[in-house]
Design a protein around this nucleic acid. Structure first.
Lengths: 287, 287
DNA sequence: GAATCCTGCAAATTATTTTCTTGATACGTT
DNA sequence: AACGTATCAAGAAAATAATTTGCAGGATTC
């Protein structure tokens, strides 16, 4: 658990002196991470021992341990608790977006249910045919990404972002197949219906979505991704990066699971691409 | 500049004692970041003052400053200089992928040419029609992502991953249009040809690609993304996350540039999606 | 052989933590 | 309601630990 979260959670239980310290740390991270205990104490108008106690309360060994913990999560977590910068200077916008993306990955990692991921990859690896569903800009990208990654491993897979097709495919699927669907909100009713149909036909179903959402509940295995989406309407993107990472993890696990077969297929595709380019082998799969 | 890079660069100029310290820090980061100067000195079999001198040489104020710097880049940079873990345990695979993705974002940010990004977004914002090109799994995704993001801002945009179409479109484009193309390797010869055609017709061209590559050289404005792609053939993904972030930044800047218009269009699309769902406004654009 | 640089020792300084004490607040008892 | 007790916060001072500086011996290089 990271120190920022701990600080937020403990906030209520802290004494007023400790709260002053927390304030300073949260608001002027740069200062806090470089300051000595005396400087920090002075700025918070408390005594050094109080700072030590504050660190201990937060679960750190010592003040320097606290600083390390702080610096450690800072790069990713720093902006998470701060209001989004209002600046529209290109450099700030860039930094903002990148930090958010890193945050999303950070939070994804923290909340990742490894056993669900493992189950999902096992089913995918054993499927005779895989149907990857998702609609709208984001989830349809995830679906085609799944197709993209899995066909290279020698698996049979098709992606669809078309609700009618999804329903028909779900109805046509067999128990030896797997249906995997993605929905950022978890409230894609048509996807839920496709899952229902599949489950009636005993087709294994996997959802990539928010936990406890309708989509999550409709699927047999749910790899849940719970991230707070920023509320700037221009930027609904960072969550998707987390989804992409999930796909990446899934595909990698599937690859390791069916290794011999995958290596061969991959090599063949790569060969084809390379010779078609300029004979330079540096080029990796799928420009 | 981060401490890991500095350490790598200074490596040759360090004395043997200092090299021993660097070795320990690089190989056992966890230890280094938690150790006191005495412990670290003992492990490297040098005296504490040598450690202090080592830190100074690396441009740090003091040992504790060094530790903070270390902890700071660590979360992202730690694994970058370490051989990739060989473990295929799901938790390790997940961590590996996420760390790599964060690294990619980190390196992207470090190498980002803000003025190029700004130029690119200005052109996009002023275009009468935008052609977004890219082929293969990754770049075609980037192209459609561009379409996805830009049409919401009320811009006219089409994406194509088909080389023949790309050539025809490039030939048909007008000087008031913009052609934007992506290529991870920078060696997509057909995309180069499309750029050439466009430039002949005085159509502004933007490339998202590796700097100094054929594609980069063919375009008028290049937003360069230079990342070392890991060499595990199963995972060519992290670079793409960086590309997505670039698209995100571009789209955001364009949005800010044409704000009034964009807000209206966005709201309309959103309205449409929301009413079509379950009336819950929490749902953000483009599931 | 001189100069430079590395390196450790010991002392000095600085930082951090512990201990002890005071003051405040809350709670229970009369 | 008033008093006493318990509990906790917080600082002062002392103790400890960590870090840095100055210096000198030794190695290496030119």
């Amino acid at each position: 658990m990271d120190i920022f979260t701990t600080m937020q959670e403990e906030r209520g239980r802290l004494s007023q002196s400790e709260n002053r310290i927390a304030d300073i740390v949260l608001n002027d991270f740069e200062f806090a991470v470089n300051a000595s205990i005396v400087e920090l104490a002075a700025k918070a108008d408390v005594s050094p021992p109080t700072v030590t106690r504050f660190c201990r309360r937060l679960g750190c060994e010592s003040f320097s341990d606290f600083k390390v913990q702080l610096a450690r999560t800072a790069y990713v977590g720093m902006r998470y608790f701060k209001p989004e910068s209002k600046s529209i200077a290109p450099a700030d916008v860039a930094q903002d977006i990148i930090t958010k993306a890193q945050n999303a990955l950070f939070l994804l990692h923290r909340g990742l249910d490894i056993s669900a991921i493992e189950q999902a990859s096992n089913r995918l690896a054993g499927a005779e045919m895989i149907y990857a569903f998702g609609s709208g800009g984001n989830s349809s990208m995830i679906a085609s990404e799944l197709q993209n990654r899995l066909f290279r491993l020698g698996l049979r897979v098709t992606a669809s972002s078309d609700h009618s097709m999804q329903l028909m495919m779900a109805a046509a699927a067999k128990p030896t197949d797997v249906l995997i669907g993605s929905s950022l909100s978890g409230r894609n009713a048509e996807l839920v219906r496709a899952f229902m149909l599949a489950r009636e036909a005993k087709v294994p179903t996997i959802a990539l979505t928010q936990s406890q959402s309708p989509v999550a509940l409709a699927a047999e295995v749910t790899v849940s991704v719970d991230l707070p989406e920023g509320n700037n309407i221009y930027r609904p993107t960072s969550t998707r990066i987390a989804y992409l990472a999930v796909v990446d993890i899934l595909a990698s696990l599937v690859a390791y699971r069916i290794q011999p077969q995958a290596t061969v297929t991959l090599r063949r595709i790569k060969q084809q691409l390379v010779t078609h380019r300029d004979g330079d082998d540096r080029q990796l799969l799928g420009d």
